[in-house]
């Protein structure tokens, strides 16, 4: 369709990025097996989540993999009603930030409650999942 004011371009651009995860592949492999792990710097002891191979504290690249833990407390949350193009077939989803008992915060979908039932301070459990397309991810479930 065209009119005098605009020229809809005939050329479309579809982008799909291949994201490198070779330095954190242990995380994704463990997640696929239902386990949540993350990185700890072997020089200064800094625990990072999301996992990263290079320490943001002391810049050392030496790291070990530790259990992330699954017990968390809900810090804040929202319910996404207007979803982006690439989530257009999803129902609205609740996203929360949970503080793990062992330190780092995690952002993930929250299941097992409606937005009206949630309050900051609620106890959550972090669980591994695999999407229908076969991608591993993780969610919070309200206890």
């Amino acid at each position: 369709m065209s009119n005098e004011d605009s020229l809809p371009s005939r050329r479309t651009l579809s982008l799909r990025f291949n994201i490198a995860i070779s330095k954190t592949k242990e995380f994704w492999a463990a997640l696929r097996e239902g386990k949540l792990i993350t990185t700890k710097c072997t020089s200064c002891g800094k625990v990072t989540f999301p996992p990263q191979a290079d320490c943001p504290n002391c810049m050392s690249s030496g790291h070990e993999w530790i259990d992330l833990g699954t017990d968390a407390v809900l810090v804040t949350f929202t319910n996404v009603q207007i979803t982006p193009t690439s989530f257009v077939n999803h129902d609205p989803y609740i996203v929360g930030i949970g503080r793990l008992a062992d330190g780092p915060n995690v952002l993930a979908w929250v299941e097992g409650a409606t937005v009206e039932q949630l309050r900051p301070g609620d106890r959550l459990r972090l669980e591994a999942r695999v999407s229908p397309e076969g991608n591993p991810y993780y969610v919070f479930v309200k206890n």
Partner: peptide, 17 residues
């Protein structure tokens, strides 16, 4: 990638808190 955050959603996290 997995959680479909939107610009209003990021600020909603602050609003709730």
């Amino acid at each position: 990638e997995n959680y479909g955050m939107t610009f209003p959603a990021y600020y909603a996290l602050y609003a709730v808190s």
